[in-house]
Design a protein around this nucleic acid. Structure first.
Length: 137
DNA sequence: GCCAACGTTGGC
DNA sequence: GCCAACGTTGGC
């Protein structure tokens, strides 16, 4: 299983919105960036991802699971753009902030730190485990 | 609210 | 196919 990170501005689509969709989940649509799309094409059903609130909050708030692999994005007729479906699994015991991640030398290679504008990104196994430890406090 | 970084678009 | 212009994202 691989790990990922999904970034969303909470005023547009928040963790609470995602939770409200339940097991039915929701398309991660609206991505118009090739790098992000390519990562979504690599995702497999059952992979997991962090749900990150950008802008005002800047913290990882929950865990999601990929429930449908890449398919055409229903919000556009442009067939270049695809998306996966994800569902909320559980919130983190405590959110892990961008500041905390940046303060942690073991996470300095994270895409989140080095390419802040990429909205869908891979997370290494060791990064995933370490962030979960941080969330447990 | 500003601005740096970056990706995309389109003219040539 | 290059590159300038432009638009968008997101941290600060």
């Amino acid at each position: 299983m691989r790990y990922w990170l999904f970034k969303s501005e909470p005023s547009t689509w928040s963790w609470d919105d995602q939770v409200a969709k339940g097991d039915a989940g929701e398309e991660w649509d609206g991505v118009r960036n090739y790098q992000a799309r390519n990562f979504m094409r690599e995702m497999a059903k059952g992979d997991r991802g962090f749900f990150y609130h950008s802008q005002k909050d800047r913290e990882i708030v929950g865990i999601v699971e990929i429930i449908a692999e890449a398919h055409p994005d229903s919000t556009t007729d442009d067939d270049r753009w695809e998306c996966v479906d994800i569902k909320a699994i559980e919130p983190l015991p405590a959110p892990v902030s961008l500041d905390a991640i940046k303060d942690e030398p073991r996470l300095k290679e994270m895409v989140l730190v080095n390419n802040s504008r990429l909205s869908v990104q891979p997370v290494r196994d060791e990064e995933w485990d370490f962030i979960l430890e941080m969330a447990k406090g």
